[in-house]
Amino acid sequence: MTNPEPVRPDKVSAPLTRWVHTGVEAPYKLDVQGLVMQETGRGVAYSAELIHPEHGVVGRISNEERGGPTTFHSYAHEKFRDRDLTAFVAQCRQDGEPLDPTGVGVEILLDEVINEGNYTDLVAEMRRNGNFLVRSFEPRTEDNDGVRRGPALVYTRPVLRRAARDNLASELAKEPEHRLAEAAFWQMFHGQEWVPLLPESALTAEQTTARIDEVVALHKATTSPEGVMCRQLEDGMYAFSTLVRSRFTLIGDGTDFVNTQRWCQCKRRVAKPVRFERWSIRDGLLESGTAHAAKSCRRLVTVD
C-alpha cells in the first residue's frame, strides 16, 4: 500500500470570507470608494473605484444603465486586471451556488461589490444617526431565478418591540410597491446580520410564565422601602423593577441601564456584549438584544 501524496500548502483552500449584505463568499473582501449613483430613464447608473485589500485602488466599476453590462476597467494591470478578476470570481459563491466566471458571474460579482458597498455605507449611517434598516428577502424557489434582496428602507430609530414590527409589516403590506412575493419576507439589520423582521419566539408559553413568576416572587420578597428590586435570577440575569407599571428589565451584568435608542460606535469592544430583556407581566417579553457592556457606552450591539 502506498502512502497518499502530501497536500502542498498552495493547494490548500483558504476559508472564504462571507460578505454580510449580499451573501457572497469570496477569498477576500473587495470594497469600493467614491460611489456615484444616478437615476436614468432605464434605471440607476453607477460607478465606483474598486479597492483591493492588498493593492488599494485597482480600477473602476461602472454601468451606464443603457442595457449594457457592468464593467471593470483596470488602473493597475500589473496588480489586478481582468483575468485576475475572472480567477477571483471562479472561487466565489453566492447563497450556496458558485459564480460562473465564463458567463455572467463576473457581472454579478461586480454588481454585488457595489451593493455591498452601498449597504455598508447605510449601516455606517444607521450607527451614526440611530436609524433602523429593513429590506425584503425572497429565497431561491422553483419559480424564480435566485435569491432577491430588496433595497434598504431606512427608519429614524431602532424598532425593538415585536408589536411595533408587526405594525410596520402591516403598514408596508398596504403599499403596492412593498407587497411581497409569496415566498418573500421582511428582514432587519440587527446590528451584525440580516435576520427576519418577525422572528419566531425563542421562548415557549411555559418558559414565559416561569420567568414572570420568578421575578414577581422575588419582588414580593424584597425589603426595599421604595419597592425597587435588583436581584440575580437563577440563570445569572439581574432583574430590575419597581413593578409600579407591571414591567421589569433583565440585564446580564447588574448595571441597570442600556441605551436602546442608539447604536454602539466604539472601535473596540473588549468585553462580551451584555444581554438585556424588557418584560411586561401582562404581555411577556417586549424587546431584547445585546449592548456594549462598558459603562461609558451601554448602546445597542444587536437587537433580537
Rank of each mutant, 00 (worst) to 15 (best):
P158F: 10
L160N: 04
R162P: 01
N167P: 00
S170P: 02
S170G: 12
E171P: 00
A173L: 08
A173M: 04
A173H: 11
E175F: 03
E177A: 15
E177I: 09
R179T: 07
A181T: 10
E182P: 00
E182T: 14
A184S: 12
A184Q: 05
F185W: 10
F185I: 08
F189V: 01
Q192V: 11
E193W: 11
E193I: 08
E193T: 12
W194L: 01
P196N: 01
P196F: 03
P196E: 01
P199M: 07
A202K: 15
A202P: 10
L203F: 15
A205V: 11
Q207K: 07
T208Q: 09
T208D: 12
A210H: 02
A210W: 09
R211K: 14
R211F: 04
R211P: 00
E214M: 05
V216A: 02
A217E: 12
A217K: 09
A217V: 03
L218Y: 12
A221M: 09
T222C: 05
T223F: 06
T223A: 12
P225F: 08
E226W: 04
G227L: 07
G227K: 08
G227D: 05
C230L: 07
R231S: 10
Q232P: 03
E234Q: 11
E234T: 10
D235N: 13
Y238K: 02
Y238A: 14
A239Y: 02
A239V: 05
L243E: 06
V244K: 15
S246V: 13
R247N: 14
G254E: 04
T255N: 07
T255R: 02
T255H: 15
T255Q: 14
T260L: 06
Q261N: 11
R262E: 03
Q265E: 00
C266D: 00
C266I: 00
K267Q: 12
R268C: 02
A271P: 00
K272T: 15
K272Y: 06
P273H: 01
V274D: 11
V274I: 14
W279F: 00
W279C: 03
S280N: 13
R282L: 13
G284K: 13
G284M: 14
G284I: 04
G284D: 15
L285V: 15
